[in-house]
Amino acid sequence: MREDVSLLVFARELLLAAPVTIEITLGAAVLAFAMSILFGLARLSRIWLVRALARIYVEFFRGSSALVQLFWLFYVLPHFGILLEPITVGIVGLGLNAGAYGAEIVRGAVIAVDRGQYEAATALNFSRSRTMIRIILPQALVAMMPPFGNLFIELLKGTALVSLITITDITFRAAQLNVFTLQSMEIFSVAINVYLVLALAIIFFMRSMERRLGRGLGRVGGVS
């Protein structure tokens, strides 16, 4: 006869692990965003070598599985004498993976900006970098927000994988509690709803970002 532990106890235990999940999600999101912009623009470079390197990064991280990448970083890097905290491995691995998907979002959004905008900037004698930073990116950024929102959610979902490289995130705690109490359905149901709440927080955050970025472009309420 097992001793039944209440849902509230599970909820408290799992919420205690939530900061780890949040830290990895945010850390990886920042890294992924930087990689997205960097490699998304590199994919459009005039220098073929830069384009080729960006292409390799994107294909490599999108093509090999995220969990395989995490395991590789976690188990193989120590062989090269590189000892990282598991949490760093999680952030770097997930960030690089999501960045590869993000780079394609950036590329698509930049291409989608109307040609007339480039022509107008040229007519105003803007340099190429100034055109990109002042004219193209602010408009492309608005178009990037909805797909970035989806990527952000995918990233949050992906953080569950770090439980398999010894990081005590929500999923790790849930799997641990499952072994102790065997109340699988209760534990994992609570866990999945914790993730749902975090996903909803991300959705609300991205909506407000969309509205804010859309404001200056005469598109109040963001792009539809």
């Binding site: 979902k157 953080t159 999923t171 499952n178 699988s184 994992f188 999945i192 993730y195 996903a199």
Partner: peptide, 20 residues
């Protein structure tokens, strides 16, 4: 719901919870 939550947890739910 299913799209917004981790596949890994869903695998655990099906294996440890739902099917048993």
């Amino acid at each position: 719901y299913v799209r917004s939550t981790p596949l890994l947890i869903q695998i655990y739910i099906v294996y440890f919870g739902l099917l048993p």
